[in-house]
């Protein structure tokens, strides 16, 4: 079972939820898909080893062979290629590495080169949580290939619980992270901005057909718009994490709060059961 934790914007407590949920359940695989800023391990502090490179195929164009026919340009749906009168020009930041231009070129002027754009890492076997994380190298624009490769390491199977910490927002890397998950927990804050970002995220998960529920973090700020929205849209509010000083202090010290406020393990486990039930009932319908 794969449960993603996502949010319409950063800083809502998404990672806090993912890590505390993982620790409460215990035997899980935690996949940190926020490859531009992997931060689950700031709280878990496990020893991490490199597992594999992320290699993106990139085209290399041979200006001497190119006859400027423009077929590669027409083919590339990402507009990563252009042909000048002096020869072709590639924009690596736009290239998705699909390899199509190499197949299409009638002169075999395009060959495949490789670029290492990131790395997949894994916590050591003695770690509390089996943490996997991807890291996109600075300056590399394509997060999605790193996420896709990271997710190939997910263990599927009876009884396996996988928690996926999605990047924030609603763009491509989020879609790549949420693809194929059984459930999505959306984390938000009880503010008008939080509500706005939540609504954007809800649109994404609805379009993807993923069952979901909401966790309101830093609850108790006196704004009830998020709850009103959830109730009116039949969206389950799975949990409310109070705006408590102790939680904030533990967070700033990099300590998952269930480690010290152990009664919260029970709350997370109960929420996990609710989520399982919701998944089952959606599958039945």
């Amino acid at each position: 079972m794969k449960i993603a934790v996502a949010s319409g914007k950063g800083g809502t407590g998404k990672t806090t939820v993912a890590v505390n949920l993982a620790l409460s359940i215990g035997k899980v695989q935690l996949i940190d898909c926020d490859v531009e800023e992997p931060d689950c391990n700031l709280f878990l502090r496990s020893d991490i080893d490199k597992y594999q490179d992320v290699i993106l195929p990139v085209p290399r164009v041979d200006g001497n062979k190119c006859i400027q026919c423009g077929k590669c340009v027409q083919f590339c749906q990402y507009n990563a290629l252009a042909v000048l009168s002096s020869g072709p020009m590639l924009f690596p930041q736009l290239c998705h590495g699909c390899g199509g231009c190499m197949l299409i070129c009638p002169e075999n002027a395009i060959t495949e080169d490789e670029r290492i754009t990131g790395v997949i890492e894994r916590s050591r076997s003695d770690a509390r949580i089996d943490l996997w994380q991807g890291e996109l190298f600075t300056g590399e624009p394509m997060a999605s290939p790193v996420i896709r490769q990271l997710k190939t390491n997910i263990r599927e199977g009876e009884g396996e619980v996988v928690i996926i910490d999605s990047p924030p927002g609603t763009a491509c890397p989020v879609i790549a992270s949420l693809r194929d998950v059984d459930y999505c927990i959306l984390v938000t804050e009880p503010t008008p901005f939080g509500l706005n970002d939540l609504m954007l995220a809800v649109e994404v998960v609805r379009q993807m057909g993923i069952p979901f529920g909401v966790i309101i973090n830093r609850n108790g700020m006196g704004y009830d718009g998020v709850e009103v929205y959830c109730n009116s849209g039949d969206i389950p509010v799975l949990m409310k994490i109070p705006d408590k000083r102790q939680i904030a202090v533990l967070y700033s010290e990099g300590i998952p709060f269930v480690m010290q406020m152990t009664e919260w393990k029970g709350h997370f486990l109960k929420m996990f059961e609710d989520v399982c039930r919701q998944i089952l009932s959606t599958k039945e319908n």
């Binding site: 423009g70 990402y78 507009n79 990563a80 290629l81 252009a82 042909v83 924009f91 736009l94």
Partner: peptide, 19 residues
């Protein structure tokens, strides 16, 4: 044609100018 496409609109538009 590239006014509403995903990315790379500038590259596409520049290619049109060149063509």
């Amino acid at each position: 044609a590239g006014s509403s496409g995903p990315g790379g609109a500038g590259v596409q538009a520049a290619q049109q100018m060149i063509n």
